[in-house]
Design a protein around this nucleic acid. Structure first.
Lengths: 160, 160
DNA sequence: ATATTAGTTTAGAATTATTATAAATTGAGT
DNA sequence: ACTCAATTTATAATAATTCTAAACTAATAT
């Protein structure tokens, strides 16, 4: 079953309608799997082919997609919330590499934390249901070429 | 050397003055090491004994403390930025446990990621300078007692 | 077919967090 | 004390997000 069918099913299963607006938003997310779009970006990109789209609808739809665990809301420190499609498996989470010099955001589509999650449970009596792992730093290729494309303000490193 | 002396030194080293306002903010943070205070919280708590304090000053001071790597700015998904004192060692980062049922935020004062950081460098050519690791889940003690104190809205889990 | 209803969308207002501005104040060095 | 630059304050401005009320839509019952 392809992604859109699966999502459509999830909507139905929770008695939500897959309206054209919602459809358009889901399609856009699927077409840009590797980007982490903000509400504004989603809004702008759809607005072109679909002028009668309300910003509030985008907010509500993304929130709904969160609720259905189709996307994940994240904040990378540039002041806006960004949304990230979840893979097929809920427990198969990915990690992020955030480049200090160019702002590039790369995903590691792998879960490296199973062991640590067991340790958390053992040592802290804490049952992990989800996690987030971001690395800040620089790509070697990036620092060599001195690519200072768009070094966005980041929270963890605090600009220095 | 104690914490306040060290911080004072860092201010001096960068030609910043340790004004009474800044002093007060630093003291408050030190006195609440384990909490992750927001700007508003810092502002309110100091305002009591120090009525002539501007909110903008709190923003600016916390930003400055970030720049000096004394605190770290983080966003846990409740809509406000929170600030967290860094330990003595920059590279000795801690991790977070965030409880879904009561919203409690606990720190693991340890660095479990050295190995993974090496792996990131090896496999992705990415030199890590900082990281962030949060676990979402529930404390066993918490779920047993059903403590639903104040389940704040969180981003990663998206409310469900 | 038509009326009803619940869910959805829209535009715009309201709210909230944060940043910018300009005038007043402070503090270190002379 | 005087000067200059850094800092602070109060306020205004901006930006992201949420709320609201009216309009719209699709499905169902009549």
């Amino acid at each position: 079953m392809n992604a859109i069918a699966k999502i459509s099913q999830q909507f139905a299963a929770h008695n939500y309608k897959l309206t054209p607006q919602r459809q358009a938003i889901v399609n856009l997310l699927l077409a840009n799997e590797n980007e982490h779009l903000s509400v504004e970006e989603v809004y702008m990109r759809i607005k072109g082919g679909y002028p009668h789209l309300g910003l509030a609808t985008v907010y509500r739809t993304l929130e709904l997609l969160c609720e259905l665990h189709i996307v994940e809301k994240m904040n990378f420190g540039d002041g806006v919330a960004r949304y990230d499609l979840r893979g097929d498996e809920h427990d198969h989470m990915h990690h992020h590499l955030i480049c200090n010099s160019c702002g590039r955001l790369m995903e590691i589509k792998d879960d490296w934390l199973l062991e640590l999650e067991q340790r958390v449970e053992r040592e802290y009596g804490f049952k992990v249901t989800d996690h987030r792992l971001d690395f800040k730093g620089t790509f070697n290729t990036c620092s060599r070429k001195g690519c200072k494309a768009s070094p966005k303000k980041q929270e963890i490193s605090c600009g220095a």
